[in-house]
């Protein structure tokens, strides 16, 4: 029953939209390759550790892996799940609040409550 609205774009708007889409695509591909690259490095680090390459002790490999993992999660959320785009303020706020609580409470347990 509700009318279907048809919004026509002017040529200028059309070219702007195209340029934006192209840019977004370039970003996506760039981020995708970066993520694959990070994954490759992670695997190589573990292999290097397992084959006893000098310098790849677990005290170096594990923190680096965690760091890469955090970067990957960020990229995933912001580029592939579009959190960097407009109108995601509220979901971001709730995700960060949840992350802060989910981090603080276990931190309390392992620092001041249990030991």
């Amino acid at each position: 029953m509700a009318d279907i609205q048809i919004i026509k774009r002017s040529p200028a708007e059309q070219s702007l939209a195209q340029r934006r889409a192209k840019e977004a695509m370039r970003n996506q591909v760039a981020m995708f390759s970066l993520m694959i690259f990070l994954t490759l490095i992670s695997f190589s680090m573990v292999v290097a550790h397992l084959s006893d390459v000098v310098g790849f002790s677990k005290f170096f490999v594990i923190p680096t892996l965690f760091l890469f993992a955090a970067v990957q999660v960020g990229l995933q959320l912001y580029y592939f799940m579009h959190m960097s785009e407009k109108g995601h303020g509220i979901p971001q706020m709730f995700m960060f609040t949840g992350a802060v609580l989910g981090f603080l409470i276990p931190l309390t347990f392992v620092t001041i409550v249990w030991w």
């Binding site: 609580l101 603080l104 409470i105 309390t108 001041i112 409550v113």
Partner: peptide
């Protein structure tokens, strides 16, 4: 969310 253990002061958290 930051105050739950005040119900448990006497539990012996230190």
């Amino acid at each position: 969310f930051m105050v739950w253990a005040h119900h448990m002061f006497t539990v012996g958290l230190g």
